[in-house]
């Protein structure tokens, strides 16, 4: 019973993880309803098109999902399974042509984008809505899309960008920005050293307190043991101290006698360059 519960718990943890890495990462990204002179399909026609963006950082297969422009018919266009072109690369796109010409290939839908102002993508069960979109009047040749891939708001884009990033403004990388703001590198050094210190300082604080707590607990344990021994009829403190002192002096004397005796024994552990304390003292390179 416990085992079954454990498996169910694991499954519950695992399922949301699966969802996070699957078709739920797909989003409508850009559409062009009135394509009069722009992007042409593989038959040379100016058809309306829909761009879907994979927001995940892993491959997602859209095969098996459904596209529709009719809220009452979620399974209007089943996207065929098993075709390599339905597998969308991380942070990449797939474009479907919506001119009601399904015989032209699997990316050609059986409805026309101009028929309605609604679009939805359903999961393979035909019930789970992944993403939907509705729009107002559209202008010819101007795409309607997300200002940034995968994010809001939707705007009329300055450039049509099928299979490409919606944001076409030139952008600098994080490293370039850093270099522009901090050409000497002092800012980076200060921030990064602070972070490194902060992390290790936190480690220090935690283990310092942990060590203190541990030592305190050890002492308490010893005191408890001593009390229980005393309860069992052991001699009083003075006698214990005297016995302890005698043992200590005896041990010290032994130590003094053996002060110059050094036993060297070769350790037979496997040598590794990464952690070789065994060669610590003797393994000094020859000059």
């Amino acid at each position: 019973m416990k085992k079954a519960g454990f498996i169910i718990l694991l499954w519950c943890i695992y399922l949301p993880g699966l969802q996070a890495q699957s078709t739920t990462d797909l989003k409508f990204n850009e559409i062009l309803v009135h394509n009069d002179s722009g992007y042409i399909d593989d038959f040379g026609q100016h058809s309306p098109w829909i761009e879907i963006f994979n927001t995940a950082f892993n491959y997602v297969d859209i095969g098996g999902c459904y596209l529709t422009n009719d809220p009452s018919d979620p399974k209007k266009y089943p996207i065929p399974k098993g075709d390599p072109i339905t597998r969308i690369a991380p942070r990449n796109y797939i474009v479907f042509w919506a001119a009601n010409q399904p015989t032209h290939g699997i990316r050609h839908l059986n409805f026309d984008l101009r028929e309605s102002r609604f679009l939805a993508l359903y999961d393979a069960d035909g019930r789970t809505l992944i993403d939907s979109l509705s729009w107002g009047p559209q202008q010819a040749g101007i795409a309607y899309g997300r200002a940034e891939d995968g994010s809001l708001p939707w705007i009329f884009l300055p450039k049509n960008t099928p299979n490409a990033n919606n944001n076409t403004t030139p952008r600098t990388s994080a490293a370039q920005q850093f270099q522009q703001i901090d050409p000497v590198g002092i800012g980076m050094a200060a921030i990064a050293m602070s972070v490194v210190f902060l992390v290790l300082l936190m480690l220090f604080i935690i283990f310092k307190n942990f060590s203190n707590a541990f030592i305190f607990m050890e002492k308490r344990k010893e005191q408890k043991k001593l009390r229980s021994l005393r309860g069992a009829g052991f001699p009083p403190d003075e006698n214990l101290v005297a016995v302890g002192l005698a043992i200590h002096l005896y041990a010290k004397e032994i130590q003094e006698h053996e002060d110059f005796i050094l036993t060297i024994k070769k350790v037979s552990r496997t040598y590794s360059p990464w952690s070789s304390k065994i060669y610590g003292i003797g393994g000094w390179p020859r000059h």
Partner: peptide, 30 residues
């Protein structure tokens, strides 16, 4: 002896010192 951990942080100064010199020598930030 947890305080020794802070020495491990201080020695990372070499990384950022070299970073600053590399920038001056014309390498880009990456």
């Amino acid at each position: 002896n947890p305080r020794l951990v802070l020495i491990g942080a201080a020695a990372q100064l070499g990384i950022f010192g070299a970073y600053m010199i590399a920038l001056q020598l014309g390498f880009n930030a990456s």
